[in-house]
């Protein structure tokens, strides 16, 4: 439904996105993930034919965004970030205007509006003035607006930004629901959200795609291994020295990093482990051999959040190295 090839957009003095390549199949829900300023909104604006790319091509529903912008827009429902709308209009009136503008015939407009009002839970406010709506309702109105001409593709720019946790949950289930009938591209910097909703995630940073895959696969392939949380205490009243613990832990084979802090005379340490290593036994033995008391020992795999931070905060040089390592790994496999 969406094909993007070597898509580049530069503004005077800055490049917003650089040579993006991805495609989205019918029925997919794809999350577009990246820190602010990564180029998510720019990409979405190109896909809705709101702005033109500097180079490269983007096709939406089979239509090139530059050659057939109107066809593209007919097939896309777009929820812009911050959900702009005409404050002085009434909810129903606004939807009617948008429906007609998007080519819904007058006779069907009524039914369409009723449907999206019902679907987005706007029944209570349909006669209210948009300006007076709460943030939550306004967001729903934006979604209703995007849906009003029943487009096969939905492009949602930060659909949950500024909502409270309850509302976020609602929107999330709504998107899952919508995914049965629509192809959806949504952007976010809230990670659990995309992880739960999306079948696939595209992570973008500084205008480039740094990773794209299913969330489970991303987690597996990108995590530099699990991490281990250890809390140690000395057997007597004297507090355990942080340096001593750190050195001992760092000496274990397979430990890549140690992040230790002293808490109430205990030492809490977060160990970064090599890929596929399980060091719980070794840590236990170490504690026993030193006579320390092990208060806590738990292993956890990386959250998507950590992957994200890893991917988007890497220095350029590191990135290169990581990519080379990745390729080498793939070559072996």
């Amino acid at each position: 439904m969406i094909q993007v090839e070597t898509l580049t957009k530069s503004f005077p003095g800055a490049t917003a996105i650089e040579e993006l390549n991805f495609s989205i199949e019918r029925g997919e829900i794809v999350g577009f993930l990246g820190p602010n300023g990564a180029g998510k909104t720019t990409t979405m604006r190109i896909l809705t034919a709101f702005i033109r790319p500097t180079s490269g091509t983007a096709k939406v529903a089979g239509y090139d965004v530059e050659l057939h912008p109107l066809e593209v827009r007919r097939n896309v429902g777009y929820l812009p970030e911050n959900v702009p709308s005409y404050g002085e209009m009434r909810v129903e009136e606004f939807l009617h205007y948008r429906a007609r503008l998007k080519g819904v015939p007058r006779r069907q407009a009524r039914a369409r509006i009723e449907e999206v009002i019902g679907r987005c839970g706007l029944g209570d406010v349909q006669h209210r003035i948009v300006e007076q709506l709460s943030k939550g309702y306004r967001q729903r109105l934006g979604l209703a607006e995007a849906l009003v001409h029943d487009p096969p593709i939905l492009i949602l720019d930060e659909p949950t930004v500024g909502l409270d946790p309850n509302q976020i949950r609602q929107v999330r289930s709504q998107i899952t629901e919508l995914g049965r009938q629509h192809t959806i591209l949504l952007s976010s910097h809230v990670l659990p959200e995309v992880e739960q909703v999306c079948g696939r995630i595209i992570i973008i940073n500084k205008g480039r795609i740094v990773a794209q895959d299913r969330p489970e696969v991303l987690r597996q392939s990108l995590e530099g291994g699990a991490s281990l949380l250890v809390e140690l205490k000395s057997p007597d009243a004297a507090p355990l020295r942080q340096e001593e613990a750190r050195e001992a832990l760092a000496g274990l084979e397979g430990v890549t990093s140690v992040d230790a802090e002293a808490v109430d005379g205990h030492v809490r340490a977060q160990l970064g482990l090599e890929r596929g290593r399980d060091l719980r036994e070794e840590v236990f033995r170490l504690a026993v051999s030193r006579g320390w008391i092990l208060l806590e020992l738990s292993q956890r795999s990386m959250t998507l959040e950590e992957i994200f931070v890893n991917l988007t905060t890497r220095e350029p040089g590191e990135e290169e190295a990581a990519r080379a390592a990745e390729e080498a790994r793939e070559g072996v496999a």
Binding site: P80, P84, R98, L101
Partner: peptide, 14 residues
């Protein structure tokens, strides 16, 4: 200013 131009020009209108 209000950003509604983004709505206006992402509707199928020239």
């Amino acid at each position: 200013r209000s950003g509604t131009v983004e709505l206006l020009l992402t509707a199928p209108v020239t």
